[in-house]
């Protein structure tokens, strides 16, 4: 698989907010209510197109439980984008956003693009966090914001792609030195599979969140 750029994404947020389901919906376009909880980290990948450029997203889906934070922190390194996820039906997952953000600010590079996602918006009848609160939080912290549903696929595609578009724009604006991999961006080789492309080829095909 050839790509113009490869972006590393990391999905973070409390346990059970639907990180793995968002990933699976994005990579495999399906919702799997029954899957194993994530231990450590899982990987997914998908090709998207922005500005007619093939861009590969390599997505790291992390374990949410507090105990694993020290391990999770090592995954931030070299991430170009982060999806910070909470569950609109569980207030505490929203309350913990600040602590997640602090981790991200501390351990990721400063130019990492962060997308705040209020997941499970299909469960409006059990909503515990209003859309406005989400918007407000995002605005205060300079994040992009969307409510989404891994179950219905609403806004899932958009969330990942919008993040990529933002990163892509930063590249166009010269924010990144794309040759420096610590920004989580790898330059591909046009139509020719580059070393990274070859290496990750298999994942791009399988795509699932569970290895």
């Amino acid at each position: 698989m050839s790509y113009a750029y490869l972006f590393k994404y990391i999905i973070i947020g409390d346990t059970g907010v639907g990180k793995s389901c968002l990933l699976l919906q994005f990579t495999d376009k399906r919702f799997q209510p029954v899957h194993d909880l994530t231990i450590g980290v899982e990987f997914g990948a998908r090709m998207i197109t922005i500005d007619n450029k093939p861009i590969k997203l390599q997505i790291w889906d992390t374990a949410g439980q507090e105990s694993f934070r020290s391990i999770t922190r090592s995954y931030y390194r070299g991430a170009a984008g982060a999806l910070l996820v909470y569950d609109i039906t569980r207030r505490e997952t929203f309350n913990h956003l600040a602590s997640w953000l602090e981790d991200a600010r501390q351990h990721a590079n400063a130019n990492m693009t962060i997308m705040l996602i209020g997941n499970k918006c299909d469960l409006a009848h059990r909503r515990a966090v209003s859309t406005e609160e989400g918007e407000q939080f995002a605005k205060e912290h300079g994040l992009i914001f969307m409510e989404a549903s891994a179950k219905t696929a609403q806004n899932v595609e958009e969330a990942f792609i919008k993040t990529a578009a933002t990163i892509y724009k930063k590249i166009q604006d010269g924010v990144f030195d794309v040759s420096n991999e610590s920004y989580g961006i790898k330059v591909g080789y046009g139509g020719i599979p580059g070393p990274s492309g070859g290496r990750d080829g298999a994942t791009a095909q399988s795509g699932g969140c569970c290895s």
């Binding site: 346990t15 194993d36 909880l37």
Partner: peptide, 22 residues
Amino acid sequence: KERKGLIEKDVVRTDRSLSFFD
């Protein structure tokens, strides 16, 4: 409540593909 909630969330995500737990 937190512990119970966490366990409730996790047991339904443990080896559910096995017939023993499906």
